[in-house]
Design a protein around this nucleic acid. Structure first.
Lengths: 234, 234
DNA sequence: CGATGACTTGACTTCGCTCAAAGACAGTGG
DNA sequence: CCACTGTCTTTGAGCGAAGTCAAGTCATCG
């Protein structure tokens, strides 16, 4: 199991039987191989990494921090397609153009690779290519979960599932408080709700004693049974 | 460019600049390599291929026909995650279990491979692994488009985007009639709408002269401008 | 400590869901 | 050939939940 801070890594749940949890995929040799074709960069909060439709020159792996990937619609509405965390890959393009825009929502450290260089490397190392395959499949599953969330009708259920997702994704298995690092607006754009509906749903969860706020961006689950009940009642 | 009927193939839009359209990815050598580890099978309409949560032993490639991948929720509602067409891959599992159920909606010809065998093959052929990576990335993009569709509020817009998607996916570049091979219920489950809302939206499109029906499951776009206008107005 | 942006709360409107029933179609067997 | 049957589809009426518009509150940073 690779440790933090020793180079780029990927996390995903493998295809086969065995581990149920996300695991580091890369050997340290592979990690230094990727490190050798990547440059690392630090970005402040709120920095646009690339814009939808622009020329896709690079693929990114997150070392730490959180990134949102989104699309702006003609109406001015914004759809957040996914939130990306440490060890996630993003920037895989279509026909040389990015499908979404990407922006940091916390300070972020990234590894950047030229797409052609990465492709070459993968074509020389089948194991590594399989790891990337596994990772992208993992992200595909995430996208499907997202679809399940947004096809719920009720705001309360969507928000609850969202909190549950954040708990799983970012929570490193310690206490039961959930970090909500993004704004209500970002969450709303991810959930396909209005900002107000998100706010109301959170208030409702608080009022009924299911969660408590420890600051606006930190939530603690008080009543796990009802919490899971709402999440599962879809 | 691989031809039809000469063995398994994959279609996807590649990463790099160049082709804008989906292209066959595999060399004929790779196709026969896959053919050598796959068994082909024919299934009638409505046949369940595998059930959500069951042991994932195989990965599938569609030779022809249409498959739906779906999940049943505790409430009895069903979410169709994706419709799969010729040259699509499905059945990539998580921890040895399928995430969704899969069922044919037309007669279907499939290639089936044992997941372990496929994994071995990919680990020996980096090019092939990269092709699969490209394919799964393509499916990831499809999932994101799906998310964009279902986060629209209006039934009319969702249905219009759905028709547009079917036109792109299955339409082989001939006339302007769109085949809608799935039932209204399947479409509704894909779009996160009630069956009635789908029906009403289609009627509305017909009434306003934007589309015409050529049978229940075939649609012709009469007013392309307004059609695209609705699809883009999100 | 004042200003700016983030968040919450309230009132009204809209649109899709639910329930209910009727209409079209394909396959079957007399 | 045609009525029969079950499924798929369309259409209608009423309700409820989320969106929108509009204030108002809170917090964070100069």
């Amino acid at each position: 199991m690779p440790e933090l801070g020793t180079g780029p890594s990927l996390r995903a749940i493998p295809f086969g039987p065995g581990t149920r949890d996300a695991a580091g995929l890369l050997s340290s040799r592979q990690r230094s191989q990727i490190a050798s074709i990547a440059t690392s960069l630090q970005l402040p909060r709120g920095k646009l990494i690339y814009r939808e439709g622009s020329n896709a020159q690079s693929v990114f792996i997150i070392a730490n921090g959180i990134v949102k990937s989104f699309r702006d619609l003609p109406s001015g509405k914004r759809r957040v397609m996914t939130f990306l965390f440490a060890d996630d890959v993003f920037g895989l393009a279509q026909s040389g153009h990015y499908m979404n825009s990407a922006q940091t929502i916390t300070p972020v450290t990234l590894y950047r690779m030229r797409v052609a260089t990465l492709a070459d490397t993968l074509r020389r190392d089948a194991d590594l290519a399989v790891h990337f395959l596994c990772k992208v499949t993992h992200e595909l599953r995430g996208a499907l979960r997202h679809t399940v969330i947004v096809t719920r009708r009720d705001a309360l259920g969507r928000v609850t599932m969202f909190l549950r997702m954040l708990e799983r994704d970012s929570h490193l298995g310690r206490d039961s408080s959930i970090d909500v690092p993004m704004s209500r607006l970002d969450a709303a754009n991810y959930l396909g709700l209005s900002l107000e509906a998100v706010s109301r749903a959170l208030s409702e969860l608080e009022r009924s004693g299911i969660i408590a706020f420890e600051g606006r961006r930190v939530v603690r689950v008080l009543d796990r049974v009802r919490f899971e009940g709402i999440a599962a009642a879809l």
